[in-house]
Structure formats: structure tokens, C-alpha cells
């Protein structure tokens, strides 16, 4: 069995978000890049499956759409244990564009993991689109995945409870938090081996993105907290009515 894990290259979650002068693009200056946290958990679960059922999983491949500078993110995935990596050499323009590029390289895999969303644009679209483009089944909001004797058991969160499904392969699993406990820290041996693992650069195909960004806005800064004394109920009502305008 071959597993593919999609890897988003996203700004560190503590990044102070800034945009360029005309507010049409994210200002990547000085930003530290990481593996999208959902994808990192997906990779962790894939590695766990390989370790517990290594007789049936022959390799774990990671793939992204990005320029050469995103290779360090892919190599981190290799350092924690992925066997090889594929980078489609293009700027990730929108979800459809990314899914279309990935569809060219995501062929021949039995199980594909996609994080439910990426922590940069939170589009939550690539996984579903890729499954459609590949014409394979997908299941979303996956919070648990077990592999027993080659058959797949999926847990997913549903309104007011959870659901357990038996699924056939091939499958694209769109995973959320809970799929693995926490991401792995790469061991030094893995870090040293990462550079010698295969990293294939694929040429992008011609495809038009479906969306374009007109402008970005930062959320309004949070107003400071006002404390109202416990015997000033009228003042509280006035503030809620006149300032907060919630009454």
C-alpha cells in the first residue's frame, strides 16, 4: 500500500500577519514557514500506521505545490519519516489550482491524507477537489483511522456524536485534529537522512485558477475591556446599548 500526504507550506502560527502596500498579497518578509498543522498530524498518523502495519504500507510520499524555498518544509516531513517527496514547481494560486496540480502527481496511491484546512487561508477545499479530480471517494472530518488486515476503519465527528465507517480503497481522507495526538519531533538521524531521500520536482500543468484576490483586510483591533462596578447595572446597560450596540 502507498500513502500520499499533502503538505501545505504555511507561515508559523505565531506570525504577525502583514500585507503589501496595495493589500493584495501577504507580506512574507521574515516569515518562518512550517508544515500546515493539520497536515503534520496527518503525516504523524500515516507514520504510525506504517509502523504498526508495516507489512502492508510500503511507502509514505509527501507532496506540495510551491517554489524551491518550500523544499525545507518538505524535508522536515522527510526528516520525521516520510520516504519521498514531490514538489510541483508553481505558486499555489488558489484551491482549484493546487488541487489540479496535485491531481497530476497523486496517481497510484491507495490512501491520500489531506488536512481539513490550511492555517494560512483556511480554505478547506483542496482535499475535496482533489478527490473529485481523481474520481475517488473521500471522507471528511476524519478524526481517527485504523488499518486492520488491509481494511480501513474511519472515525469521524458528526453533529452530536461520532460515526465509524468501513471504507474501501482508494480513499482520500480529509483529516482534522484528533487524527494523531501530537506532531512528531524529528530525530537527528532523520534530519541527517532527509537530504538523501528522493525529492522529485514536477512541472506544473496549465490551469486557470478559479478565484483571484481583490484585497486583504486585517480584523479590527480588539477594543480594550471595560470594567463596570457591580452596583452600576444601569451604566452596563447603557454601554451595551450605546457603545457595544448589542442591546
Amino acid at each position: 500500500m502507498k500513502i500520499l500526504v499533502l503538505i501545505g507550506n504555511v507561515p508559523d502560527t505565531t506570525t504577525k500577519v502583514k500585507f503589501n502596500a496595495d493589500k493584495t498579497a501577504f507580506d512574507a518578509n521574515g516569515v518562518q514557514w512550517i508544515i500546515n498543522p493539520w497536515d503534520e498530524l496527518a503525516l504523524t498518523r500515516a507514520l504510525e500506521l506504517k509502523e504498526t502495519a508495516d507489512s502492508c504500507i510500503e511507502s509514505i510520499v509527501v507532496a506540495n505545490v510551491g517554489r524551491v524555498e518550500t523544499e525545507s518544509t518538505l524535508r522536515k516531513a522527510l526528516a520525521v519519516g516520510a520516504d519521498e517527496a514531490i514538489r510541483v514547481d508553481a505558486d499555489p494560486k488558489d484551491a482549484f489550482y493546487v488541487a489540479s496540480q496535485l491531481a497530476q502527481v497523486a496517481i497510484g496511491f491507495d490512501l491520500i491524507f489531506a488536512g481539513i484546512e490550511a492555517s494560512d487561508y483556511n480554505g478547506a477545499a483542496v482535499g475535496g477537489m482533489l478527490a473529485e479530480l481523481l474520481a475517488i471517494q473521500s471522507v471528511s472530518a476524519v478524526s481517527g483511522i485504523q488499518l486492520e488486515n488491509g481494511s480501513l476503519k474511519i472515525n469521524r465527528e458528526i453533529d452530536g456524536g461520532s460515526q465509524t465507517l468501513a471504507m474501501n480503497l482508494p480513499l482520500l481522507a480529509i483529516v482534522q485534529k484528533g487524527i494523531a495526538k501530537e506532531p512528531r519531533i524529528p530525530a537527528m538521524r532523520g534530519i541527517m537522512m532527509a537530504r538523501s531521500k528522493k525529492l522529485t520536482v514536477a512541472t506544473p500543468i496549465e490551469v486557470e485558477p478559479l478565484t483571484s484576490i481583490l484585497s486583504f483586510e486585517l480584523p479590527a483591533p480588539k477594543a480594550s475591556c471595560k470594567l463596570v462596578a457591580e452596583d452600576q447595572a444601569k451604566e452596563l446597560i447603557r454601554l451595551l446599548h450605546e457603545e457595544a450596540k448589542v442591546l
Binding site: 525545507s72 524535508r75 534530519i191
Partner: peptide, 10 residues
């Protein structure tokens, strides 16, 4: 280097 940064992060 990339490896040094990965070790720092680890």
C-alpha cells in the same frame, strides 16, 4: 543550514 535550524526547532 537547514539541518541546524531543524535541530534548533526540534
Amino acid at each position: 543550514t537547514e539541518e541546524q535550524l531543524m535541530i534548533q526547532q526540534a
